[in-house]
Design a protein around this nucleic acid. Structure first.
Lengths: 188, 188
DNA sequence: GTCTATAGCCCGATAGAC
DNA sequence: GTCTATCGGGCTATAGAC
């Protein structure tokens, strides 16, 4: 049994967003690759905002699971952060795709309202997780920094997002790794 | 004597790029604000690529001068980096504008060739300057880090760019300041 | 240098047949 | 569910009058 059409649409839209951004792909791009007409895509996702929202929500789900997996398999806070960064690195290595949150954030002003809301949720999910890891690292005395874990989490996430954008633009995934060093150095 | 029309066009285009991005403003947006027709803008900048290129080159010039000013008025490497970050912070405070390089980088795939080239130049200009500051900081023993200054410069610039994107999207310039802390902590 | 007018393209979206 | 056909709008860009 093949994949549902709506799933194929979401997969392709995700690739386009990670590679070019939300406003740089069209229903036509997707229709061409799937082999159906643009009007058929509107059957599944009446507006592009609907598509963006569905896609962001699906990504929220898979990100939640990825973070839970890290928590389940790793205790050391420093190692958790390394695994977190690894996700972004792998996306860049395989297909030069930036984090969808970074792409959506840099296009934030031009997004439909319903998509904006999902972007906020995605950032909060990841920054909250990072803050929790930082706190546990402080408690275990493997991390050392001044300031609130929450603020540190914001700075770390921004740094990773910036690195994915530069990495993708210049096809240089190595930028993620040197950013990982910067982050680890700043909290140990 | 008023400003040249071509200067007004460049000023407005710069504001739009810093606020929305290169592909999210049109000749019509600019024509509306200046009070001339779009065809008149084509008289000064035949294609949008010409406009983007001219604008990036003008920004290269002003950035060069800003960096020279820092070098002339500041000796302490740490203080140089603080002044560098301050530039991005001020742009966000006054008008919620992100660094044009960050905006252009995140839209990189969708830029005309001639603009892409200028973006590369702009990044190199700033990363080279940062690397120089880092080296002098190492020599003066006010900085301490492993790895190449060049790589550290890339990571620092990416982090700042990411912070400006998040700051602008969520109207929270404070993100720049916590990123400044992260950077300073990672090299001292 | 600025205008009017328009070409040519792409976009998201809808109506209605099958 | 998928199609054809089309609408209304946006965009960059050009031709040619003044």
């Amino acid at each position: 049994m093949g994949k549902e059409v709506s799933e194929k649409i979401l997969d392709l839209a995700m690739d386009y967003i990670m590679g070019r951004g939300y406003n740089a792909f069209s229903y036509k791009d997707i229709s061409r690759e799937i082999g159906i007409r643009t009007s058929s895509i509107h059957y599944y996702f009446p507006t592009k905002g609907d598509l963006g929202k569905a896609l962001a929500q699906r990504f929220f789900q898979s990100t939640t699971e990825a973070l839970e997996l890290i928590d389940k398999t790793t205790q050391d806070p420093k190692e958790k952060i390394r695994k977190f960064v690894r996700i972004f690195y792998d996306n860049l290595k395989s297909g030069n795709r930036a984090c969808p949150v970074a792409m959506l954030s840099s296009d934030y002003e031009n997004l439909p309202e319903e998509v904006k809301r999902e972007v906020i949720n995605l950032i909060q999910l990841q920054e909250t997780w990072l803050a929790k890891v930082l706190e546990s690292g402080i408690k275990k005395k493997v991390f050392k920094f001044s300031g609130k874990p929450n603020d540190k989490a914001k700075a770390i996430f921004s740094a990773i997002e910036g690195a994915t954008i530069a990495s993708r633009a210049f096809s240089d995934p190595g930028r993620i790794l040197i950013t990982e060093d910067l982050i680890i150095n700043s909290i140990t």
